[in-house]
Amino acid sequence: MNESHNNTPEADSAQDFAVTIRNMHKWYGQFHVLKNINLNVVRGEKIVICGPSGSGKSTMIRCINRLEEHQQGDIIVDGTELSNDLRNIEVVRREVGMVFQHFNLFPHLTVLENCTLAPIWVRKAPRAEAEETAMQYLERVKIPDQAHKFPGQLSGGQQQRVAIARSLCMRPRIMLFDEPTSALDPEMIKEVLEVMVELAQEGRTMLCVTHEMGFAKTVADRVIFMDEGEIIEENSPEQFFASPKHERTKLFLSQILEH
């Protein structure tokens, strides 16, 4: 699980972590959304983040590719520190893929064009090559036959799988999932989770905000529980589910596991 077996003096530096968050705070106006967040994510680690709604879990992972700005503390992603330097933000976003709750596919482009847009305009890939890569990933998410359709013609589950393929086409080293199955009908959740489990087995760093506890048990190296803008508890999934330490964690688990 832990890959940081490097014993050089810098072993503890941010270079060895895919993501380092130190003493990070964020406010929306007066509202203190994130309070003193500290998190080190080892390369290749799969982290599941859960917590009641409004606990700041989505906001936290959206800070990692700076869709949200933090006001205090440091965030270092893949060796690049996030600040107001626009170039750094671009570098980070190229290496960090994101999958959204509401898919956010581009409705005016075909599935294939959705997947090739960023490789062509950001990575400057030749179209043929970008399309070849896109088809590979569409096959991975099991919808190559939909390549020439528009997003509006697909089901929710299919759209989310396209969104995953679109992110993968940039070959990101880190993948962020922001409640990827929350907007899906129950029978479609499974097809998306299957794709995510396969991805997890490939060794890419993943941070996933989800309430799918089955998924957490299968793939997570670590489960993080957040409430009211703080990280309350983090542990291996076995420990986390079997013996939660904190009262709020117990309450949360009892609520979501009951139903």
């Binding site: 190229r94 960090v96 959204f100 581009f106 847009l117 960023a118 679109r166």
Partner: peptide, 21 residues
């Protein structure tokens, strides 16, 4: 706004986000 977020998250620059998406 999710369109802008998705396009930015893919690493597209601001003017490309506007022009392409």
């Amino acid at each position: 706004y999710g369109q802008t977020e998705a396009a930015s998250a893919l690493g597209l620059k601001r003017n490309r986000v506007l022009n392409l998406v």
